[in-house]
């Protein structure tokens, strides 16, 4: 049984930089504990020597020649950003 409590949920939510309402935390704790219980069925499966499968066709990453192929599209891409200036994305001050 995996039981996550309030502080576990708060810790995970911070790792994910995900705001959740204080009042919803107990429900998330229950939901997450139930989901983890469900996935714990896998613990009883013998996977000794089984190679982890990352791609359904076991394909490997293709590489291309290191050549510039895309044009600089910054203005177009930044048009939909919440806040930009002089080609940069603006966020609250990070360094004092």
């Amino acid at each position: 049984m995996s039981t996550l409590d309030k502080s576990d949920v708060e810790k995970i939510a911070f790792l994910a930089r995900l705001g959740i309402d204080e009042q919803d935390i107990p429900e998330y704790a229950t939901n997450l504990s139930n989901i983890l219980d469900m996935v714990e069925q896998l613990d009883s499966v013998d996977t000794e020597g089984v190679k982890p499968m990352a791609h359904p066709l076991d394909a490997v990453q293709r590489l291309r020649a290191d050549e510039v192929t895309e044009v600089n599209d910054r203005e177009n891409l930044q048009e939909h950003a919440p806040e930009t200036a002089e080609g940069l994305y603006l966020v609250p001050k990070v360094i004092e």
Partner: peptide, 10 residues
């Protein structure tokens, strides 16, 4: 672990 059970399913 899930990537391993994924291979068993496949």
């Amino acid at each position: 672990k899930a990537q391993k059970t994924r291979r068993l399913i496949t």
